[in-house]
Every structure is written in C-alpha cells, then in structure tokens.
C-alpha cells in the first residue's frame, strides 16, 4: 500500500497564551521562542499510516509538505518516525505573499498537494490531519479529496488493510463505526488512544538522514502561482481579551464550600429541571480493548497506567 501523509509545519501549539504574540504586521503569530513542529493531527495521521504499513506487512509511506526550507525539519521528523520518503513543495511565490496566516487558503494548498501526489504517480491512500494547529480550519484534507476525486472518510482514528479497500475506524458520539472505502481513498485523521505518535528511536533518527527528501517547485508541478490566490481575505487578526474575575467560594469545610457553591450555581439559573440516569451502573468505557487497537511494539509518548479496574 502506497500511503501519502500530508504534513504541515506550525509553531508549537502548546505555547501558552501568556507567551503568545502577533508579529508586528499583525498578520500571523510571532515565532518568539516557540519551536516549529509537525501540526498535531498531521503527526497523528503519520502514526496511523505507519501502523497501517505494519498491518499490511509492507508498503511505502511518503510524507508530503508545502512550505519553505525550514519545513524540511518536519519531514526529517517524519522520516525518523520511519516514513520511507519525503517531499517538500516549495511555497515561494504562491498565494498572497505578506498576508501571513491569510497567505494561502485551503483551496490553493489542496491544489498544490494534489499536483504533487499526481507527480508521485498517485497514492493508494492519502491521510491528512483533521485540521492544522495554526489555522484550525479543517479544510485541506476534504478539499484535497475533491481535487483527487476519491472516496473520503472524515475523522478516522485507525485503519486496517482490506484487499482493494481500506477499513477505517471512526469515533461517533458514544461509540464507533468502521467505514470501508475502495482504494484509492483519502481520510482525515483525529486523535484517539490508539494513535498516539511514536517517539523516534535513535537509530531511526540516524537512518532518517539517509532517506530521500525531494524538493519540487510549483513550476515543476505545472502549478500556476496566479491560481493560488486566496479566495478569502484576512481582514484582521487579534488576541481576544477574556479574563474573567473568578469568585473563589470559601467555607470552613468541604461541606460548607459545596453548599455555597451549590447556591451560587443555582443562582446562575441555567439548570434544567430533570436529570438522567445511566441505563447501567458505572462507566462503559474500558481502555485498551476493542477493534483497531494498535499492536505496535513502538515506544509511546504518553505511557498509560494499566487498565481500569473492573467493577
């Protein structure tokens, strides 16, 4: 299975609000001391692709990005996570230069990525993160699906090869479903406990430097820069003021505090008059089980404690 994963390099989204600034033009975030990382859901999409390759017993995972030279760091990280190859399409001269966050819209990015995928000879499966951690828009993956004209599954969390098709698991409100799509197909990916991105091993980091990293320009792909002008204009970017004065409810004991809090909550006049009861006792969620559970022996970033005790 040939899988292409589209990744975007963004400023670390974990940067706390107090350190967050806009650049002097007010068109995008100021880099400050924030590092550049692979956008959260794109890294998760990579993990899903690598797990699929493992389940299929082989295949090729290619990481694809649109960006400047610094974006190659994101590709090196993808290669260290054990992607097989990487491609950067240079964004020089595309979109509306100087417009910061509004420079390229989802349509332009999707058109360029589609051209790159065609240049790669197509892909059996294209995976994209659900949304980028800077624009938070959730557009590129679905627009790319339309560009490519392939079956589409939104918000998948894991996949299984199924012959000429792929079976993708999606979380639904209070459950899950498995959706089958004939290849070639595209899926957007969201987070779950089965797709926490692996931490690259030292030997894989070393090996990543020997893997191929191809650079194409828009001209190489036959993309007309004029066709990448954004369809929407960023009129203003600002940091909202939203500090609330919090009333700390006091009391001599937890009982007294709870009583005072109950009164203050009731005074908000937002509580309904009827509640509900769970059909059964206790929580139904049990971690660590179910279809699509990753069986990879790879190191995990956020090791979890053992299962939930039965009740």
């Amino acid at each position: 299975m040939r899988i292409v994963v589209c990744v975007k390099q963004v400023l670390d989204p974990e940067l706390p609000q107090r350190d967050f600034r806009l650049d002097p033009d007010g068109k995008e975030a100021a880099p400050g001391r924030a590092s550049r990382v692979i956008s959260t859901f794109d890294e998760i999409a990579l993990e899903v692709a690598l797990q699929l390759r493992e389940k299929a017993g082989g295949g090729q995972v290619t990481a694809l990005t649109l960006g400047g030279k610094p974006a190659e760091e994101a590709l090196r990280k993808a290669l260290a996570m054990t992607a097989d190859a990487a491609v950067r399409v240079d964004d020089d001269g595309l979109g509306a230069p100087g417009e910061g966050l509004g420079r390229l819209d989802g349509f332009a990015v999707a058109a360029v990525l589609a051209a790159a995928i065609r240049r790669l000879g197509g892909a059996d499966l294209v995976l994209c993160g659900r949304q980028a951690a800077d624009t938070d828009a959730g557009q590129v993956g679905l627009l790319l699906a339309e560009e490519l004209g392939v079956p589409t599954v939104a918000s998948a969390v894991s996949g299984e090869p199924a012959g000429e098709a792929v079976r993708l698991k999606r979380e639904t409100p209070g459950g899950y479903e498995v959706v089958e799509a004939r290849l070639p197909a595209l899926a957007t990916v969201t987070n779950a406990d089965v797709n926490v991105p692996r931490i690259p091993k030292v030997k894989d980091v070393m090996a990543s430097f020997k893997k191929p990293l191809t650079v194409w320009t828009a001209a190489d792909l036959g993309v007309d820069p004029a066709a990448t002008a954004p369809r929407v204009a960023l009129r203003r970017l600002f940091i909202p003021e939203r500090e609330t004065a919090c009333e700390m409810v006091g009391g001599d004991s937890p009982e007294a505090q709870a009583e005072a809090l109950a009164e203050r909550i009731l005074a908000l006049k937002v509580l309904e008059t009827r509640g509900w009861r769970h059909a059964g006792a206790g929580l139904r969620f049990r971690p660590g089980g179910g279809a699509g559970q990753a069986a990879s022996g790879t190191d995990r970033r956020r090791p979890r404690p053992g299962g939930v005790p039965g009740r």
Binding site: Q17, A29, A133, L234, L237
Partner: peptide, 9 residues
C-alpha cells in the same frame, strides 16, 4: 485560530 489564542476576521 491558533487554538483559540487569537481571533481572525
């Protein structure tokens, strides 16, 4: 945008 740290018009 930016995880709610900024707003865009």
């Amino acid at each position: 945008v930016y995880g709610g740290k900024a707003m865009a018009e």
